[in-house]
């Protein structure tokens, strides 16, 4: 419950943050809302020697209309997504899901960038960005690059971000349909939470839908190809069962 001693640096620009990351390498950790990182540090499961606090980079907190997509600053708090009128109009599923995260305290601290960079398969926002077919923008010593959400999540708590990179923006296509885990955007994207070591697309369901299957039939294969783990909350079998039920409900909601 008491973290290992660490240095703390609060930065006022992205460049400053990148400079510190370059100096300290993987000894350093970015601190955004702290709601995933600090619990791990208190359990001494994460032991960074330098914390680079990017929490006050207010210019990375925004939700903007960028034509075909909506651009979201990585430091945007869950609460700001939840209450964003732009998201409500253009990407309602993201606003809806942000409003489901934890409790008000968590939503006022946690950031979308932190949630994605943490790469927890049990988190909500990564799955939504994945289902939406979003794009992530990162800056590192070599400049800026974009990463498709599809190839961002590499393993349990592992992402495509390098230790010297900072996530600056998340871009999500406009998609006007609300649904718990499904999004329609010409095609239908379905992503699953907690069904493997990363957030996953329910590819069998997506393929079935593309081939014209009914919602019921498409949902029935939602767990295909997944390898959920078991814990006190649910066994792998139960998770597979839940995936079919919840995907069906989400598709029905999206279709109605």
């Amino acid at each position: 419950m008491i973290p290992v001693a660490f240095d703390y640096q609060r930065v006022s620009s992205v460049d400053e943050a990148l400079g510190l990351l370059a100096t300290h390498g993987d000894e350093a950790k970015l601190l955004a809302g702290g709601h995933s990182l600090l619990p791990l540090m208190k359990l001494r499961l994460a032991v960074p020697s330098v914390l680079v606090d990017v929490g006050r980079l207010h210019d990375l907190s925004y939700v903007r209309d960028a034509g075909d997509h909506v651009a979201i600053g990585a430091l945007t708090r869950h609460r700001d997504l939840e209450t964003s009128e732009l998201l409500a109009a253009q990407v309602p599923i993201l606003a809806h899901v942000a409003g489901q995260v934890g409790d008000p305290q968590v939503r006022h601290r946690g950031t979308i960038g932190g949630s994605l960079a943490h790469g927890d398969p049990a988190s909500d926002l990564p799955a939504v960005v994945l289902a939406l077919g979003g794009t992530l923008v990162a800056r590192g010593p070599g400049g800026e690059r974009t990463i498709e959400a599809r190839s961002f999540f590499e393993g349990f708590l592992q992402t495509a971000l390098g230790p010297d990179e900072l996530l600056t923006e998340i871009r999500v296509p406009k998609a006007t349909i609300v649904g718990a885990a499904a999004v329609r955007n010409g095609t239908t994207g379905v992503a699953l939470v907690n069904m493997g070591s990363t957030p996953l697309r329910a590819s069998a369901t997506e393929a079935a839908l593309a081939a014209g299957a009914s919602i019921g039939d498409a949902a029935a294969v939602a767990a295909e190809g997944t390898e959920p783990s078991g814990d006190l909350n649910a066994s792998p079998d139960f998770r597979r069962h839940l995936a079919t039920v919840l995907v069906r409900r989400a598709l029905e909601e999206a279709a109605s």
């Binding site: 909350n233 649910a234 139960f238 069962h241």
Partner: peptide
Amino acid sequence: ATPERVWQ
């Protein structure tokens, strides 16, 4: 009576 127990 967790969801899994009820389901089972």
